[in-house]
């Protein structure tokens, strides 16, 4: 009877979805550990440091780890300035209606599946990169990075914009009233208040960039190698996801090849989980504060 009187559908719904998402994540984690265990037994740490990958002989994940890192780095270095700039303009300069339209478009863009970006990438971006940098071919780390930067731009932009908007209006008024210019107000009063939210947005963007498979697979060239010299990003390579996309179906289920791919999956899983966790723990409380502020304003 007591339990019945305490029954709250909302809470039960929340609890069950929380439980489901936690347990699914846990199952995936355990599955990856179990499936990848043999390769760590077989190759040891050489799996992480080896740079040769020939199924049936040797499995070294370093080129894929390197590729994922490089591609993500390129994606963020291009997306961040653009996203931040447009977030500042949208939040601080544009009027409410234009802002809503832009936000809507950005959220629409964020919903386009990766394969569509991949097709645009393979037909337009590779050609553009090839011609711009006068390369033999347009498939490269750089192309994949640019493509990813376009893909994560909406995510980073909308979340940064939310962070900027959640900075109380009073800060802006106060800085303006002291005689600061519009630009100084943004720089000294608004950005410091939003910096955590922006950092969170970038981390979530990194998470998305690392996890994106098919669009990267179509433009990176899928060659398991670390370029020489290592900073030559205008050459073909491989990321963890493109490797999984290429060989997953063929290796399905049995043998060291499968274990090695599961090992790659585990590396990616741990990295993305870690980054997303940090991202959420930064964004979370801040987003909450933004909502509280809005409620306070309404009350007044």
């Amino acid at each position: 009877m007591w339990a019945l009187s305490r029954w709250r559908p909302g809470r039960a719904f929340f609890a069950s979805s929380f439980f489901i998402s936690i347990s699914v994540t846990g199952i995936i984690f355990i599955f990856l550990i179990m499936e990848s265990f043999p390769i760590f037994q077989h190759e040891g740490l050489g799996f992480l440091s080896g740079s040769e990958w020939y199924p049936g002989e040797v499995y070294g994940a370093l080129p894929m780890i390197y590729g994922t890192g490089v591609v993500t780095f390129i994606a963020v270095s291009f997306a961040l300035p653009l996203a931040l700039g447009s977030a500042i303009i949208t939040s601080e300069v544009l009027s409410g209606r234009v802002r809503l339209v832009i936000k809507m478009m950005m959220e629409l863009l964020a919903g386009i599946p990766g394969v569509v970006y991949g097709l645009l990438g393979i037909s337009l971006l590779t050609t553009a990169v090839k011609n711009t940098f006068n390369l033999i071919d347009g498939n490269s780390f750089f192309t994949a990075g640019i493509l990813l930067s376009i893909m994560i731009l909406p995510t980073v932009m909308t979340l940064s914009e939310d962070a900027l908007r959640s900075v109380p209006k009073e800060y802006r008024d106060q800085a303006l009233a002291l005689g600061l210019k519009r630009s100084e107000t943004i720089l000294y009063a608004v950005l410091p208040g939003a910096i955590k939210g922006i950092a969170g947005a970038v981390l979530l963007g990194i998470g998305r960039a690392m996890g994106e498979t098919i669009s990267v697979m179509l433009v990176i060239g899928s060659l398991d190698r670390i370029p020489r010299p290592f900073y030559n990003i205008f050459t073909t390579g491989q990321t963890i996801t493109s490797k999984l996309g290429r060989e997953g179906a063929e290796a399905l289920g049995v043998g060291y090849h499968w274990n090695a791919l599961a090992g790659l999956g585990l590396i990616l899983f741990l990295t993305v989980m870690g980054i997303t966790f940090i991202g959420n723990s930064i964004v979370g409380p801040l987003a909450g504060r933004g909502i509280n502020n809005k409620m306070k304003q309404k009350k007044r």
Partner: peptide, 29 residues
């Protein structure tokens, strides 16, 4: 606005030290 200062209804304090809050305008001007 440098010549015509303003104090608002609700005190608006930046999440900084007391020292930096006093200097917020001066430092940038």
């Amino acid at each position: 606005r440098q010549n015509v200062g303003m104090v608002f209804q609700k005190p608006c304090i930046f999440p900084k030290s007391i020292y930096d809050n006093v200097l917020f305008g001066v430092r940038h001007l």
